[in-house]
Amino acid sequence: MPVSEVELRRITVNGVALNVATAGRGPAVLLLHGFPHTWRLWTDVIGELSRRWRVIAPDLRGFGDSARPPDGYDAGTLAADAEALLAALDVESAAVVGIDAGTPPAFLLGMRGPGLVRRLVLMESLLGRLPGAEGFLADGPPWWFGFHAVPALAESVLVGHEERYVGWFLDQGTLGRGVRDEVRDAIVRTYRGTDALRGAFGLYRALPDTVRQIEAALGSARLTVPTMTIGAHPVGRALEHQLRPHADDLRGHVLPDCGHIIPLDRPGPLLDLLLPWLGEDDRR
Score class of each variant (00 low, 15 high):
Leu32Thr: 11
Thr174Gly: 10
Ile99Trp: 00
Arg10Lys: 13
Gly110Glu: 05
Leu250Cys: 11
Asp44Met: 07
Gly102Lys: 05
Arg10Val: 05
Arg284Pro: 11
Val13Pro: 03
Asp248Leu: 15
Ala238Leu: 08
Ser125Lys: 00
Thr38Lys: 04
Leu109Arg: 07
Ala87Met: 06
Thr103Leu: 14
Phe147Pro: 00
Pro131Phe: 13
Glu134Leu: 11
Val179Asp: 11
Gly64Met: 06
Gly140Ile: 12
Asp100Cys: 08
Ala87Lys: 13
Val16Tyr: 03
Asp281Met: 02
Arg119Val: 07
Arg51Ser: 13
Gly76Glu: 13
Leu250Tyr: 10
Gly279Ala: 14
Val3Arg: 15
Asp249Ala: 15
Ile11Gly: 01
Thr22Arg: 05
Val16Asn: 05
Leu78Met: 15
Gly236Leu: 10
Ala106Pro: 05
Gly173Trp: 03
Asp248Gln: 14
Pro226Met: 08
Ile99Met: 13
Glu182Met: 01
Ile99Cys: 01
Trp39His: 15
Arg119Gly: 11
Ala84Trp: 06
Tyr191Gln: 03
Asp209Val: 07
Met228Tyr: 06
Gly167Thr: 06
Gly252Ala: 15
Leu130Val: 12
Gly259Pro: 06
Ala101Leu: 14
His246Asp: 03
Ala186Leu: 11
Gly76Ser: 14
Leu89Thr: 04
Pro69His: 08
Arg25Glu: 15
Thr224Met: 05
Arg237Val: 04
Leu18Glu: 02
Leu170Trp: 08
Gly115Tyr: 04
Val45Pro: 06
Arg184Val: 01
Pro245Met: 11
Gly47Thr: 08
Trp39Arg: 04
His241Ile: 00
Val6Met: 08
Arg9Gly: 01
Ile46Pro: 06
Asp90Pro: 01
Leu109Lys: 09
Val166Ala: 09
Leu264Asn: 04
Val211Gly: 00
Leu32Lys: 00
His33Met: 10
Thr224Leu: 11
Asp81Tyr: 06
Ala154Asp: 00
Leu243Cys: 11
Ile99Thr: 14
Leu243Arg: 10
Ala21Leu: 02
Gly173Phe: 10
Gly62Asp: 01
Leu86Arg: 04
Gly128Thr: 10
